[in-house]
Design a protein around this nucleic acid. Structure first.
Length: 428
RNA sequence: GGAGAAAUCGCGUAGUUGGUCGAGCGCGCACGAUUGGAAAUCGUGUAACCGGUAACACGGUUCGAGAGUUCGAAUCUCUCUUUCUCCGCCA
């Protein structure tokens, strides 16, 4: 959500941004919202004047009643009711126009960063940098569920009977590895100065509508029957929600948090649960990082955030690359975003394991997350979020990259303390 | 889950037979005076959002949230949320 004043003063900038995102059907909305806003301000001005009159007259009535002049008071009352009808009309119009304006403003995309490459869709995303050598070993790498099964590490049959497609039982060393990755990632972020947080895994509907669009909500969120509660799709939801309607003193920024949570997603729509295994599932666990900072610091934090994920993966010997989201593939709320992708020696390509986003002040404006400057001025914060690691999916990359010809899997040194000193997972 | 009490300007509080209450007082904070400097003291100021203005002025809205009664609501009615106390139940 961008600032209405900015749109009013820079309609051409907003329009060019819409063209850059290949959403030309939204172009007429800019002029439409300017007209609606113009009318709204007229209605408000007239309404304010009438309300001012009413307030004045009501005070007179009070004074007259106190003096016992009932007849005169009745006369003034009649004056008030004369304007009551017009005022009621205006109040209805004010509500109506404010609603229309907000609805349109929610669909106008955020102004993208000048560094974002222009492109229509995900096929035009741009590789930024590779980290580590993408190796293809001379033996065949099995599908990830087959690797897991070779250690009796996954039971999808039981999961299907118990919960349906899109769920899993992780077992034994693989389950332990999963927990080890989460614990290691948590400590990794704590060591980089982030504050660890375990947030609520369910949130109210008003928080949900604050952090995502209706379409996203419908495609992702599970609702608890009979309660005003939804299972979170990512801890970003409860972590950003933490700051709704807050004014934080400037000197307390930045807020840098790393949170653990299970994540629940319907995965309804475009992809669905089609891939076999643990690539796309209804429930997974994730370590996340979020930052709330001053506007001038958000670019610096953006680069630090994705670098954290890259460093984490490199410390586990997994080659990764960063992929910059082009304008057309960038979600409307985002200023800039890069995906961190891990190397799959089986598929001989990189696949997404994390996503780092700078939301600018768009999310903050929607959720009223404000900062009090030293001079007393209030302004909207910038918000960012990034995946530290989401193990079920990252285990695919982990197992493929650390697999040996004999079927065993190496445990990188950093994970060993979390695996009871184990150096290798071997078949039993 | 049941019973009761409560939610006011950063904090603590006053205000409930509806009318100079957008709100008094204390603390905190800011500025000024006093002082060699400081403490203490005294004085002044101290919410957010929207409209309006070149900038002021000015106007509107908000006393947990929403709806209602009324010419007028912090005060009355309804719904919701949260907190505290007691009981029940449980990791």
């Amino acid at each position: 959500m961008i600032d209405l004043k900015f749109l009013r003063e820079n309609p051409e900038v907003v329009k060019q941004n819409i063209r850059n995102k290949f959403q030309d059907s939204k172009l007429p909305l800019v002029d439409e919202v300017i007209e609606l806003d113009d009318s709204f301000r007229k209605f408000k001005l007239e309404g304010d004047t009438l309300r001012a009159d009413r307030n004045k007259l009501s005070k007179q009535i009070g004074t007259l009643m106190a003096q016992g002049k009932k007849d005169e008071a009745e006369k003034v009352k009649a004056q008030v009711s004369a304007n009551a009808q017009r005022l009621a009309e205006l109040e209805k119009l004010e509500d109506e126009y404010a609603g229309k304006i907000k609805k349109i403003m929610m669909t106008i995309p955020n102004i993208i960063d000048p560094s974002v490459p222009i492109g229509k869709d995900d096929s035009e995303n741009v590789e930024v940098q590779r980290f580590g050598e993408p190796k293809v070993p001379d033996f065949e790498i099995p599908y990830h569920t087959d690797i897991m099964e070779s250690f009796n590490g996954i039971d999808l049959d039981s999961a299907r009977r118990v919960a349906g497609n899109g769920f899993y039982y992780l077992m034994g060393d693989i389950a332990r590895l999963h927990s080890a990755v989460i614990s290691y990632a948590r400590d990794f972020m704590i060591n980089r100065g982030f504050t660890y947080c375990v947030p609520p895994f369910m949130i109210r509907s008003d928080v949900v509508t604050g952090v995502m669009s209706f379409a996203e909500m419908d495609a992702m969120m599970y609702k608890i029957e009979g309660e005003d509660l939804y299972l979170i799709g990512t801890s970003e939801h409860s972590m950003i929600g933490k700051f709704i309607d807050t004014i934080t003193p400037e000197e307390e920024l930045p807020k840098t948090l790393t949170s653990y949570s299970p994540c629940f997603r319907k995965e309804k729509g475009a992809h669905g649960i089609e891939e076999r295994g643990v690539y796309r599932i209804h429930q997974f666990e994730k370590q996340e990082m979020i930052v709330v900072c001053k506007p001038e610091d958000s670019k610096m934090w953006f680069d630090k955030l994705w670098q954290n994920t890259v460093d984490l993966f490199r410390s586990m010997d997994i080659p990764v690359r960063t992929l910059e989201c082009c304008s057309g593939d960038l979600a409307d709320l985002k200023v800039k975003s890069v995906d961190v992708e891990a190397w799959s020696p089986r598929q001989k390509k990189y696949f997404e394991v994390g996503s780092c986003s700078n939301l600018g002040d768009a999310q903050a404006r929607r959720l009223r997350i404000r900062v009090a400057g030293k001079d007393g001025k209030k302004y909207f914060a910038h918000t960012l979020n990034n995946t530290v690691v989401a193990p079920p999916r990252m285990l695919i990359a982990f197992l493929e990259n650390n697999l040996n010809a004999d079927g065993s899997v190496n445990i990188p040194e950093v994970l060993r303390p979390y695996m009871g000193g184990m150096t290798k997972i071997v078949k039993k």
